[in-house]
Write a protein that binds this DNA or RNA. Structure first.
Lengths: 212, 212, 212, 212
DNA sequence: AATGAATGAGGGTTCATTCAT
DNA sequence: TATGAATGAACCCTCATTCAT
């Protein structure tokens, strides 16, 4: 009985926290970090300002929590994609697909709202550099695998491949394209994949393939 | 006499405006839009705050002017590159080179400082969309030229090519790479060019070339 | 049965009240009235904040209760000293001794923590003026007794004697001296007693004594 | 012209600063440090809140400035009294007189308002301990002089004399007495002086005097 | 034209007190 | 009875913008 009571309270608490996070994200997307004010978050959730501070003791904590959630989700996506079966190309394309879906949805836009707040940078760096690095190294492993299997051109430094790929993974131009619905995420994956994988393909193997 | 007096005054005015813009850019890069305060701009230029407002009647106007300058410079670069002689590829590579130099320098970083201020977005849009569009159409012309000459793959929609190229033109991952001096702008141009142009190359012609 | 149950509960209640008062005093001494917050009191006692309000319905009441206890204790001391056998001087010296011990201990410092909170003054006045007055009149009786017995100089108004004595009874300079352990309470009683009693001594009697 | 303009502005500034300090002192006396709010200070002076911050950049600075003024004035009084001609007793009585006048006036009460704010203590200590120490050593010099000249009892430690005197110099009981106008400052000086100087008088010399 | 003092709205955060469970 | 989540008023401080000189 008591247990269920506690977990009910706890569940309500979690629920409210979700509402707060949701409202914050909304406002963040509309107005950015500075323009978002705690009064409005509270008002939009329908709670008092003080209540907000029972969940997040600083404005920073609120957006950091939001970001943490996003990054965890992304990292999870990356890890799933990376450890999936199939060719390196297909796995990277899965990543592109995930990212473009995200870019189109609200979550993806959050990053753009937050990365702009220069004063958050120190916080973002100190708490999330690790995550970003992890993300990049996962990709790196995959790209090296592609090189080892002869799929990718060994003449192109992995660093460059890596950063080129991540430039294509989350870019402002693509975000606009997707939001304007000029292309679907699927089309984008198809064409960007085509360009990138042709671009990094091992010419040797291409030659062999062209013979086939 | 009067004219020369006026033009002297005018010249001084212009000079001071430059100083203001320069100081603003500095602070903007250091602290971002919100952290930059008008007192500090005035102090750094060595004028009174009121005087600032004789040049720019809003904080927004100040940064917008800065951005305008940047965009004009970029547009000029683009137009020069576009109308230069040579192959489409070489002209686009010139663009990449210009952009990567910029990314490495202070000017390039300005965009990141400004794009983050979400509340500037409406302004940026309303006043600069035109410029961005102009930039994109210049590139589009070039890409279409490449397609027409058989250099680029007609199977890839120009829009996609265009946005892929602009994703590679100014991306956060590349900015980091350049700032950390992991690669030189020249290397980056070389490899990114390689990837992109192989990626969008006309397979037909590649076949012809491979026959050659 | 019921009675003993009630009285058990009541005893527990009293006990908790003591704990609350104790914790409050601790915090009050550490941080002063404003810095003391109800959350911390509750936390230090190990009860919920709501429970605090079952005992003291305002923060003010809490510290007032504390003060009341102190004043009762002081009054008791004064009354004991006043009604003790011995010379007026010896009885007043007992009072000095008690006060200096208190000044050195935690309880004495409480007054300084509270008297500073100017907003408590109205409360202190309205509820404790009576007590202070009682204290002063007890002393006054004693001093008048000293005058009547020829021990004290009748030329010095009793009011002045009284307030001079109470200035020496509890003073900030002495508090510091005692806390820094520059002197012991005993030494202080000895010397301050010497100064005060010589100061108020009846010169007539001193003459007589000097003849003796 | 220009000079007079500047000094006019400067004079206005100083004047306003005085108004601010005066208003703050008033409120401080009425409500104490915590209850005093910057809005009210501004309102009472008749300026905007922001203007306040052009003069004092923190609430703390405001009250510290007030205190500094007081302490400087007190120190000046002490130094004047100490270096005046006349007997040690007459010089110390001048000090008592000055202090009791102050205690009766608004300024004297300020100390009581401020010393209570426990959180100001660190500031008070770090910035004013030096002044207090200077004050105490000035007094100490004087008392030692009195001892050397045979005026004071060498058997009483100077430290005790010093702190006894300062207990009588500024005490809460005397403040009340003076405010209630039960006694005049002059009477108080006369009687307290009598008590103190009899109390610390050299018995040897008293004996000699009694012979005379 | 240049100044810089004055303005005042606005925002983050705290905490005594209440009240549903 | 005991709890502790919820409340919201209050407060300090910042800074873009104005305007009298």
């Amino acid at each position: 009985m008591r247990e269920s009571t506690l977990s009910l309270k706890e569940r309500q608490r979690q629920q409210r926290e979700q509402l707060i996070l949701h409202a914050s994200e909304e406002i963040l997307l509309e107005k950015g970090y500075h323009e978002m004010c705690m009064d409005e978050v509270a008002a939009r959730v329908g709670i008092a300002k003080g209540t907000l501070y029972l969940h997040f003791s600083r404005k920073e904590d609120l957006v950091l929590a939001l970001l943490e959630l996003q990054m965890q989700a992304i990292l999870l996506n990356v890890q799933e994609a990376v450890s999936a079966p199939g060719s390196v190309r297909s796995r990277l394309e899965t990543l592109l697909a995930t990212s473009y879906m995200r870019l189109k949805g609200e979550h993806g836009r959050l990053f753009y709202a937050l990365f702009g707040a220069v004063e958050l940078r120190p916080l973002l760096r100190s708490r999330h550099h690790a995550l970003l690095d992890q993300l990049l190294s996962s990709l790196e492993v995959l790209l090296n695998e592609g090189k080892a299997s002869g799929e990718f051109d060994p003449a192109i430094p992995t660093t460059i491949m890596l950063h080129t790929f991540s430039s294509l993974l989350a870019s402002y131009p693509f975000k606009r394209l997707l939001l304007e619905e000029t292309v679907t995420p699927e089309e984008l994956v198809q064409y960007v994949g085509k360009i990138f994988f042709r671009g990094v393909a091992n010419p040797q193997r291409a030659y062999v393939e062209s013979l086939a």
